[in-house]
Structures are given as structure tokens and as C-alpha cells.
Design a protein around this nucleic acid. Structure first.
Length: 222
DNA sequence: GACCAGGCACATC
DNA sequence: GATGTGCATGGT
């Protein structure tokens, strides 16, 4: 951590590190992403779009129990059967399509091999993922960071709300601007990006709600 | 019974 | 280009 801090020169960077350390001391390590394999993480990243994680777990468990949580098995699985298995995660019709789109991409470009996919450099893989229908910026960055261990900062609704409330970004900042804010000011470190995003969610879930619970917020006063 | 959840694509203005 | 809307289940 001290080594990381030495790499931070800007005022914004020091502010981000201060927030990070405060959150880490308060919440502790988050052990993200909950998933046993890179492929499970990719599937989870698509299923969790605008959906509570608890519901995603049910869908993933259905796939696990059926021994279908591999690229080969899901690629071969009939669409209608897939929709039934992922039903608890909601939006099952669109998400089944999105999973199929990703699998098509994975098999066309990398013969179904996630390791080959992640052997691509981060920026060009990010561009390719964003061209897959159903994979937007947050899903792409989650896949890169949590499944591929690549340094791509993940931004979500909590992240923006928290940064806006702490006057670090304007309210109208778009996804890329918020992501660049982190990536321009923080050292490019996978573990830091991983933990930071997870800690922001912890803060968002517990304090930085649409109706803020600022009284006992760990960031109060810093 | 509203409101929210670890988004994204597409229609319409 | 900026807003609005559909997608669907399950927890609070």
C-alpha cells in the first residue's frame, strides 16, 4: 500500500487513496468477485445487470447443478432451456440472448477459450467486448477486471453517486469520464481496482443510498 | 404495494 | 444528442 501511494502524485489521486484507505479500514477486504472460475464471473457479470446479486446466485446455482457452467455447455444449450435456468435473475429473455451473443463471440474469435481471450491486451479486448450486443461498459470492465485480472476500473451507479456527493466529479459525468478519473489518478493496479470497486459498493449499499444515510458514514469528516 | 437492484439497447423526439 | 422505455424476478 505504501508503495502504491508513492505512485500517486495528483491532489485527486491522494484524495482517492484517502477514501480508499478509510473504506478499507472500515469494511475490510471484500473478496470480490464471488465466483469459482473466470467463466462463472463472466456469466455473473451479464446476469447481474440491474439485478440484485442474490437473484443472480440462484440462476448461477441452477447452471452449476445442471453442470452447464462451461463455455462449451452453454454454447450448445438451447435458448429456451437457458431462459428457464436463469429465470430467477430476471430479464431472462434479454439475458439469455446476451449470454448467447457473448458465447458466439468467444467461439468465433477464440475457439471458446477464455484464456486466449484474456491474452489480448486490455484496450483492444475492451473495444471488442463493447461490440458484443448486451455488453456495455460496466459489464466489459467487470469481465476484464474480475474474470481476466486486467487493470480496468469498474464504474457503477454507486460509484458515480459517491464521487458526485463528495464533489469529485460533476453530476453529468458519463461512464468513460468517471472511469478515466480513477485510471488517470490511481496507479494501474489490479488488486487496488478490484478492492476499490467492491468497497464503493459496500459503502453504497450501507450508506450512500438514494436517500443518503450520512450520519454514521465512514467517509464522514474526511 | 411501491421501490430498488452490481445495465443495456432501441425508439422517439 | 438527449431523454424515455422495455426487459422480469425477488427482497425490503
Amino acid at each position: 500500500m505504501e508503495l502504491l501511494k508513492q505512485q500517486v502524485s495528483s491532489v485527486a489521486g491522494r484524495r482517492l487513496m484517502e477514501i480508499y484507505e478509510t473504506l478499507f479500514q472500515h469494511f475490510g477486504p471484500q473478496h470480490w468477485w464471488p465466483g469459482e472460475t473466470p467463466f462463472e464471473i463472466v456469466v455473473g457479470a451479464i446476469l447481474t445487470q440491474n439485478t440484485a446479486w442474490k437473484n443472480v446466485e440462484k440462476a448461477i446455482n441452477n447452471l452449476k447443478k445442471a453442470n452447464l457452467l462451461t463455455p462449451q455447455a452453454l454454447y450448445a444449450l438451447p435458448y429456451t432451456y437457458l431462459t428457464q435456468l436463469i429465470r430467477p435473475a430476471g430479464f431472462f429473455n434479454v439475458k439469455a440472448k446476451r449470454l448467447k451473443h457473448f458465447l458466439h463471440f468467444l467461439f468465433e474469435e477464440y475457439k471458446g477459450d477464455l484464456e486466449k481471450m484474456f491474452a489480448d491486451d486490455t484496450d483492444s479486448l475492451r473495444k471488442k467486448l463493447l461490440e458484443v450486443p448486451g455488453i456495455g461498459p460496466e459489464t466489459a470492465d467487470s469481465i476484464l477486471l474480475y474474470a481476466g485480472n486486467k487493470p480496468s476500473f469498474v464504474v457503477d451507479a454507486y460509484t458515480r453517486r459517491i464521487l458526485f456527493r463528495h464533489n469529485l466529479i460533476p453530476e453529468e459525468a458519463d461512464y468513460e469520464e468517471v472511469r478515466n478519473f480513477f485510471m488517470d489518478h490511481l496507479p494501474e493496479d489490479v488488486q487496488l481496482f478490484n478492492e476499490y470497486h467492491a468497497l464503493l459498493i459496500a459503502l453504497g449499499k450501507n450508506y450512500c443510498r438514494p436517500k443518503p444515510l450520512c450520519e454514521n458514514c465512514p467517509l464522514k469528516g474526511i
